[in-house]
Design a protein around this nucleic acid. Structure first.
Lengths: 349, 349
DNA sequence: CAGAATGACTTAAGCGCTTCAGAAAGTCTA
DNA sequence: TAGACTTTCTGAAGCGCTTAAGTCATTCTG
């Protein structure tokens, strides 16, 4: 920048203004500066130096609980992040991805401490993930998605419990009584096997706990004892990762006539497993998903699922980010509604 | 940092060393420094300042050609990026996502110029995307994936043409002669309709051109005239986005008996459309995909497709990144092999 | 026991920019 | 035409850190 300034015969401040405050110098001089910059191969202010001077990096740290391929294989997350990115992009913010370390339910604390970002967005991390402590230690503003409230952070979630309850009620209304629950990951190292209600209730993940509670409460009210409800933890979040545990759930005697799945991905895995066992869906087995991510609509059969407005969730998260960055106080925790969408993967018992 | 130094009664350099070079001070003093830091609420060196001083940001800019939700909906990209991230993570690099602007076939140049990153990785951007110019202007090292070679950049690609040829040959061997091509996006604004071979050959995207050439050459050698091969551009890269154009391809009279699809996503869209038209796959229609992304294995029916080792591609890209960052010269362009995997979506004509 | 080697810190020069308080010169206004 | 404004540009103080070179005791060597 000094070289450009010298070449034109002005001060460094003027070159800076040429880039950042065109109104601070004559259009003519600005042209001259830009021309000189081009000739000297100067591509504009160094982003890092500018960040230091302005104490603003232009990046939003996205804290994930898993590795990237697992995270991206969840269409629900993709849609949410896309909506978030779309909101913040016009303000010049990009997303810095911090994948989980595979153990702590979030990125390593050190990664968070050294990440160049103005704010953090936590996407369903495990309770007590060290990454969250690191965010607080740094004094970074925080938005949490699908997680318990964190002091000082803004929060957006989903009506997990009500949505799950609606799914369970739907199956009960169809006359099902032998109902299995296909649960998302509960522990740091998913076992991919059967668990009892207590274990599942102690899941490290907020939405897993909430959805489970919604299912079990509703079933219990209808007289279906929790003890009679098999609960299986998926061995993975992706469809292919979950298929093995879906078999486990379907191998039980007596076989469930219906499955409550904590995500559409799990529902698709269950359908795939059922098909391989020669079961028809919904003829022999009803399946309810959760999320209503895009694949739910064109799957075979189209999925009965609990719809959450993923785009809205992402947009709200984006607005919260912009708000906190502006210095606003975190508003009261918000929730997007969840409602049952009946398609073709469920039928009377 | 100065406050911590003062509190302990040492110089700022010593505090810095406590964090970065533990061997430069006694273990005891280091403890004392860290304790004082904790008491004062100092969470360690400011990442931006550190970056400026070290001229190293610890971030890798990932240049995408589309928005995030579209990008993530492509499992092939997810797998590749995950492999890349896994390689670079131990060295402390995170991924900074720069989504495309929806017009130029890449991120806006300005986003690239202001992004805080040490290196850029371009993922199948359109030819001549302004983002690439911006990378050069900034003098940022560059790795390109599935794109034409760029001077000074490292490149990793796939044997697109050979893979496509193998797919076409497979269909010919099965006796198919009425073969349609379901093409990925060719233009900045995908039209999602029929195109002639010349239009498609002028695609802005390298792998689209290569795959098309592989298909057409092979068909031509077998006496299937290019003029008789319908080519449809997908209206989107995701399954749901592509279904409408799949209908277009299947509505033609005479209907193709087989489809060459430039990605697994497109193949799945074609299968979904076929099913809705009452066609059985592979009974009435054979479908070949490209990529062999995870869903290809558990789709219904499992997909015959061209396998590329996506993880290997990502790993190689990661190694290239680390190499360039180390100051190595870009090695000669590399290609991962592509080979046909025959599953159950193809059958004799 | 002199001189070399080692260990433990400090000094100070950057890293490349932004921005606020002027200064200089030109333009109004009454 | 003097004083008040504008416009246009400059000076210099940061932003918060890293690191090469240097200082000063100590501990080794032979």
């Amino acid at each position: 920048m000094d070289d450009v300034a010298d070449a034109v015969g002005v001060s460094r401040a003027t070159v800076s203004n040429a880039y950042n405050r065109p109104d601070q110098l004559s259009a003519q001089l600005r042209e001259e500066v830009l021309r000189a910059a081009k000739k000297l191969g100067y591509a504009g202010p160094n982003p890092t130096a500018r960040s230091l001077a302005m104490s603003r990096t232009g990046a939003i740290a996205i804290l994930l609980d898993t590795n990237l391929s697992t995270a991206f294989s969840d269409p629900a997350l993709s849609v949410t992040l896309d909506a978030l990115a779309t909101v913040v992009d016009p303000e010049g913010h990009a997303l810095l991805l911090l994948p989980g370390d595979g153990e702590s339910g979030g990125p390593r604390a050190e990664r968070v401490l050294t990440a160049q970002a103005d704010i953090a967005v936590a996407c369903s991390l495990a309770d007590g993930a060290p990454a969250l402590t690191a965010v607080r230690d740094r004094g970074l503003p925080l938005v949490v998605i699908d997680q318990p409230q964190v002091r000082g952070a803004a929060r957006i979630g989903v009506e997990d419990r009500a949505g799950a309850a609606a799914a369970a009620r739907h199956l009960l209304d169809l006359g099902h009584r032998r109902i299995g629950i296909f649960s998302a990951q509960c522990l740091s190292a998913p076992r991919g096997g059967e668990m009892n209600a207590e274990e599942a209730g102690n899941s490290r993940f907020h939405d897993t706990r909430e959805r489970l509670a919604g299912y079990l409460e509703t079933l219990a009210e209808a007289g279906v004892s929790t003890a009679d409800v098999p609960i299986w933890e998926a061995s993975g979040i992706s469809v292919e990762g979950a298929i093995p545990s879906a078999f486990g759930l379907l191998d039980r005697q007596p076989r469930p006539t219906a499955l409550l799945c904590m995500s559409d991905q799990l529902a698709l895995a269950a359908i795939s497993a059922a098909r391989q066992l020669g079961l028809s869906v919904p003829g022999d087995l009803s399946v309810v998903g959760f999320d209503d991510a895009p694949p739910a609509r064109w799957s075979e059969p189209p999925l009965t699922t609990v719809r959450q407005d993923l785009s809205a969730k992402g947009r709200v998260a984006g607005e919260l980010v912009l708000g906190l960055l502006r210095g606003d106080k975190a508003p009261a925790p918000a929730q997007v509604p969840a409602e049952l969408v009946v398609r073709e993967s469920t039928a009377p018992a």
